[in-house]
């Protein structure tokens, strides 16, 4: 485990708790340049998130995915959290603004059957980003109430943001000339 930088007291406590709660599920804990992060296995996500939330990280900033193909494990799901102090949320507004902290969890699901537990039960705003990751990467979220495509049309084939998906798509539906193919044919007069 890497050492934790000074000045991040909230996350230091969190990292200690994660190490105690998760045990072998916690693969790594790093103090990166931008924020502290923990790498965990997919099965340990929900307990980890509960620990994160119990340590004051009340705002789920983002759920995103990265495809590291051809490296393995291939998919990385990154969770960003923000801790807004409770007194700021409760209405006593400090004039200088609140002093929050950020934290990141990284999960690497299995390559052949990428499944990650859904956070929809913990945060209502996890719904759309999880659908987006499913739509663009094909990573499924276990326990998501309504997992379907969000950005691409319903009948789209493939997961566009995977690295093995060509930039121009497998089959453009509205080619000039109407011919299917990975690259639109050149239209000549």
């Amino acid at each position: 485990m890497a050492e934790v930088k000074a000045g991040r007291a909230a996350t230091a406590a969190l990292l200690a708790q994660l190490a105690a709660d998760l045990g072998a599920s916690l693969l790594d804990a790093v103090s990166a340049a931008d924020m502290d992060e923990a790498v965990i296995v997919a099965a340990g996500l929900l307990p980890a998130v509960d620990a994160v939330r119990a340590n004051g990280f009340n705002l789920l900033l983002d759920i995103g995915a990265t495809d590291h193909h051809p490296l393995t494990p291939r998919f990385e799901i990154s969770y960003h959290f923000l801790a807004l102090p409770e007194d700021a949320v409760a209405g006593s507004i400090p004039s200088s603004g609140v002093v929050p902290a950020r934290f990141r969890l990284r999960v690497f699901p299995d390559d052949r059957d990428p499944v990650v537990p859904s956070l929809c039960g913990r945060w209502p705003n996890a719904d759309w980003p999880e659908r987006e990751v499913y739509d663009l990467f094909g990573v499924r979220f276990d326990g998501h109430p309504d997992l379907r495509r969000i950005l691409m049309p319903d009948d789209w084939e493939g997961y566009p943001l995977r690295k093995d998906y060509p930039l121009r798509g497998l089959n453009r539906r509205f080619n000039p000339g109407g011919l299917p193919g990975p690259v639109p044919p050149v239209v000549t007069k």
């Binding site: 566009p160 930039l167 121009r168 798509g169 497998l170 453009r172 509205f174 080619n175 000039p176």
Partner: peptide, 13 residues
């Protein structure tokens, strides 16, 4: 945007 998502010119439809 020469990619999977964007129509290569609206004159195709």
């Amino acid at each position: 945007f020469d990619n999977y998502a964007v129509l290569p010119g609206v004159d195709s439809i």
